[in-house]
Nucleic acid binder design. Sequence first.
DNA 1: CCTAACTCCTGCATGC
DNA 2: TGCATGCAGGAGTTAG
Length: 288
Amino acid sequence: MPELPEVETVRRGLERWAVGRTIAEVEVRGPRTVRRHAAGPDDFAARLRGRRIEAACRRGKYLWLALDDDGYLLAHLGMSGQFLAVAAESEDPKHLRARFRFRDDGPELRFVDQRTFGGLALDSGLDAGEGTIPAAVAHIALDPLDEAFDDGGFADRLRSRRTGIKRALLDQTLISGIGNIYADEALWRARMHYARGSDTLRRADVVALLAAVREVLLAAIGAGGTSFDALYVAVNGESGYFDRSLEVYGREGEPCSRCGAAIRREAFMNRSSYRCPRCQRVPKAPRW
DNA sequence: CCTAACTCCTGCATGC
DNA sequence: TGCATGCAGGAGTTAG
């Protein structure tokens, strides 16, 4: 599932394959993928025709392409969205949702999405202090790899919340880019249980947690992300290999690499959480 | 304002 | 074999 490392890998691919090119034609398959574009698929396609792509940007799990008319092509991959740069002659995949052709001889760009949680929209800019961003992204917190991320401010906000630590890590308005996989991996690295109350963390605990988050995100970016199946690949079609480095996620029953205890899978927030039962003990006052 | 449940969707694995 | 069920889950929306 695309989280920050996967989205960053895709962003780099868009930088390589889309930036500097001018759009000739856009084809949208069905209304769902552009459901966030209020004016509809035809307007979406018409406005993009002739636009030059100036930059590929990201905040958390949101991606956007800055256009030469000061607009933004905003994208979210959801659970299974992909951008693929491929020769126009190659066969259309089953879940093709949008196609971008350019005014050059290079490959076309396709947005493919099996589970349709992903989406595309055109948006206008908003001055957010740290620069202009698409208006629809304004409520998303900076991600922990952004140099403007405020560690102290995050600690304050986290500690003032009355929720569990994993819920907080998954809240994109508090810290962005973390999903189920990297939340579990970071909590394992920090030796914290997912149900620990966010208001029980001392500032030093938050420092350790942020360090663990950054370590795992950077390592995963270095591996090109995590590809469990064909649902996540880079823009050039390659899979990431961070799945080999996962310590707990998807490893139920396997020994913890630190202590040897069998990794446990538990239902939490209508999904699965993985943890080491010895390294990550249940807190005295868990907040499920 | 805060927190949490609900909802959208498709394909694959599992069980009877 | 076929059908029902469960599971994967990001984030906007709604409810309390």
